[in-house]
């Protein structure tokens, strides 16, 4: 009985802790995604009409950019809800 209670409490605390953990890096993760988006955007600038870095460099980096391109695409898809995301991050409902 006592064992069960201790288990429950520790599970609760773990969940509690991980929620905090999640929250603690939320801003950094957002920032990271933004930077990745910017990085990909700069390299793919030619597509949207901004001057792009040397073609050689772009094409050489491209094969390693799967993650950044994915982030950029997601960003474009979610573009209509940027404020929602920011509001969520700052706990505004």
């Amino acid at each position: 009985m006592v064992k069960k209670i201790i288990e429950d409490v520790s599970a609760f605390l773990k969940g509690f802790g991980s929620a905090f953990k999640q929250q603690s890096t939320e801003y950094i993760e957002f920032e990271e995604r933004e930077l990745e988006n910017v990085f990909a955007l700069i390299l793919m600038g030619a597509f949207v009409g901004i001057p792009s870095p040397p073609t050689t460099l772009v094409v050489r980096l491209m094969p390693h950019m799967v993650r950044e391109m994915h982030v950029m695409q997601r960003r474009a898809v979610d573009l209509d809800d940027v404020f929602g995301e920011i509001a969520g991050m700052f706990d505004i409902d």
Binding site: S24, E32, L35, E36, F39, L57
Partner: peptide
């Protein structure tokens, strides 16, 4: 670009440390 990349990697390290 190296500068931006450094920032990204820095953030990734921070996140990895916690998560």
């Amino acid at each position: 670009l190296i500068e931006i990349r450094r920032k990204i990697l820095e953030r990734r390290r921070m996140i990895a440390k916690i998560q």
